[in-house]
Simulated assay, not measured.
Amino acid sequence: MILVLICALYPVLKTLCVQIHSAVTGSYVAGYHSVLLVNCPTEQTARDIGRSIMEKRLAACVNIFPRTTTMYYWKGEIRDTSEILLLVRTRTSLVQRLVTYIKAVHPYDIPEIISFPIDDGSQHYLKWMEDAVTDI
Results as ranks from 00 to 15, higher is better:
residue 27 S to T: 15
residue 89 R to I: 13
residue 60 A to G: 15
residue 84 I to K: 01
residue 20 I to Q: 02
residue 21 H to I: 04
residue 51 R to Y: 10
residue 52 S to P: 02
residue 1 M to I: 01
residue 44 Q to V: 11
residue 111 P to T: 08
residue 24 V to H: 00
residue 72 Y to N: 05
residue 41 P to G: 07
residue 113 I to M: 06
residue 117 P to Y: 03
residue 69 T to L: 08
residue 102 I to G: 00
residue 80 D to L: 06
residue 71 M to V: 08
residue 62 V to C: 13
residue 23 A to F: 00
residue 82 S to Q: 15
residue 75 K to N: 11
residue 34 S to D: 06
residue 75 K to A: 07
residue 76 G to A: 05
residue 59 A to G: 14
residue 44 Q to D: 15
residue 78 I to F: 08
residue 82 S to H: 12
residue 116 F to W: 15
residue 84 I to E: 01
residue 28 Y to G: 05
residue 68 T to E: 07
residue 3 L to T: 12
residue 92 T to Y: 03
residue 127 K to W: 08
residue 82 S to I: 06
residue 96 Q to S: 13
residue 48 D to P: 05
residue 8 A to R: 11
residue 53 I to E: 02
residue 73 Y to D: 06
residue 90 T to L: 01
residue 35 V to W: 00
residue 125 Y to T: 14
residue 92 T to K: 08
residue 19 Q to C: 05
residue 61 C to S: 15
residue 16 L to W: 03
residue 6 I to G: 07
residue 83 E to L: 01
residue 90 T to I: 02
residue 52 S to G: 05
residue 46 A to W: 00
residue 29 V to P: 05
residue 54 M to C: 14
residue 40 C to M: 11
residue 108 Y to L: 03
residue 107 P to E: 07
residue 112 E to F: 01
residue 55 E to D: 15
residue 105 V to Q: 02
residue 97 R to H: 09
residue 128 W to C: 05
residue 6 I to P: 05
residue 2 I to W: 03
residue 111 P to N: 12
residue 50 G to W: 06
residue 57 R to S: 11
residue 58 L to W: 14
residue 75 K to S: 06
residue 26 G to F: 04
residue 65 F to R: 02
residue 130 E to F: 05
residue 36 L to T: 10
residue 116 F to N: 12
residue 103 K to A: 03
residue 1 M to Q: 04
residue 104 A to M: 01
residue 88 V to P: 05
residue 2 I to E: 11
residue 61 C to T: 15
residue 4 V to G: 06
residue 65 F to P: 01
residue 29 V to R: 10
residue 62 V to W: 02
residue 22 S to N: 10
residue 17 C to I: 04
